[in-house]
Design a protein around this nucleic acid. Structure first.
Lengths: 213, 213
DNA sequence: ATATAAATAGTGTATTTACCCCAATTGACC
DNA sequence: GGTCAATTGGGGTAAATACACTATTTATAT
């Protein structure tokens, strides 16, 4: 750091591919905004740099061998550092994207995105907002919708677990000190989400998913 | 064979321990009944001897290295040879005993039994009846009772399998072309045998026992 | 021949499920 | 402050289940 541009935004680029780092740096330097850019090659280095200098932005690769960008992000957000995290990833696996936002990402970009998009992301995030590649956004939305539609809530899992253990609605209600109707509702909702209509299949799910402790 | 006692009962002794064969022969010769005794050391020899001469009785050891006494017995009974089989075994494992009678044994004696018992067994079996050591009999009875009490029948397993697959009584009845009440009966009996009172636990059993094809 | 067990199927009843609707509360996130 | 999801709980109903009895047929074993 410290190359004279004292008032400009500081950016860290972390990627284990030298060419990628060079390319990014070159592109970002070409933009009209003034940035003070640093780069590192590993997750470990990224974490050390961020915890020491707290740059305004950090562009992280997800797969970096040693310390995943996700872990770095998790650390940053847990310690409430001001650095905003932008993920730049090769894989557009929806689960990874979802995980990225779970650990507190501010932006997620595919490496296949145009530079314009990166530029836009940088400005959006620097302004305090979050950013998602338009191409990814719709997928994520679908995933989230699917999640709430098909994935069981904690309580539902608990109920299914009890059902798997062979307990009746009444027994579960007594155990949890809730109404039998509530148990019935959870049971029904769980079945709807899993697309089944019999406790037998909830048991299968419970056993297969290892819900029973 | 052929030692002059033409009208006496013929007995084959099969045991891979020389001392045991000698001891048995000596004991049997001492009894007041006239026997024509032969002996062999392996299961293979036993089978050849029996298929050739069809002795009245064969005293077989169960564990004989090559061809198990159980196999010899199975052959004899499958071919409906007249030879009656008496097992003489070291291990009183109830499952082995059960298996012995499954393959058609006429008697089962523990080697720890007194000679009197062997003598009694010989006469009983020679007379066309079956014989079990009193010490073993009660155990076998308990085992059989336990079997019919706790083990599912083929049909019950099938019903449990369908339940495990998430089918209702009605669906199972339709599939098997039987009354829904019959399915209900099998289901109820299976539950009673397994000591549970909910389909959920039948499903667990079904999955754990690999009943589902 | 005659017990025995399995499979079949019925009557009957109390309980439980599955599923529809709706509503209040809470905590999170914007 | 308002939306959203999760959790809670209630009304109601038709179907399914659990379970007790009995009974017939058939095959197997004694």
């Amino acid at each position: 750091m410290g190359n004279g541009k004292e008032n400009s935004l500081t950016i860290l680029i972390a990627d284990d591919h030298h060419l990628v780092r060079q390319g990014l740096r070159s592109l970002i330097e070409r933009s009209q905004t003034q940035y003070n850019i640093s780069d590192v090659a590993t997750g470990e280095q990224a974490w050390q740099f961020i915890s020491q200098y707290q740059p305004d932005l950090a562009i992280l690769d997800i797969a970096m061998g040693d310390l995943s960008g996700l872990k770095v992000c998790e650390h940053v957000k847990q310690r409430k550092l001001k650095t905003r995290i932008i993920f730049l990833s090769m894989h557009d696996d929806i689960k990874v994207i979802h995980r990225a936002f779970e650990v507190g990402a501010d932006a997620y970009l595919s490496k296949s995105e145009a530079f314009d998009t990166l530029n836009q992301a940088l400005q959006t995030v620097a302004a305090g907002h979050s950013f998602i590649s338009p191409s990814i956004e719709s997928e994520l939305a679908r995933y989230k919708a699917a999640s709430t539609q098909f994935l069981l809530t904690a309580r539902e899992k608990q109920i299914v677990s009890y059902i798997t253990q062979g307990k009746s609605n009444r027994q579960i209600a007594d155990t949890l000190c809730i109404s039998i109707k509530t148990v019935d509702n959870h049971r029904t909702k769980a079945m709807r989400k899993l697309g089944v209509n019999k406790a037998a299949e909830l048991v299968k799910y419970g056993l297969e998913e290892g819900l029973v402790v």
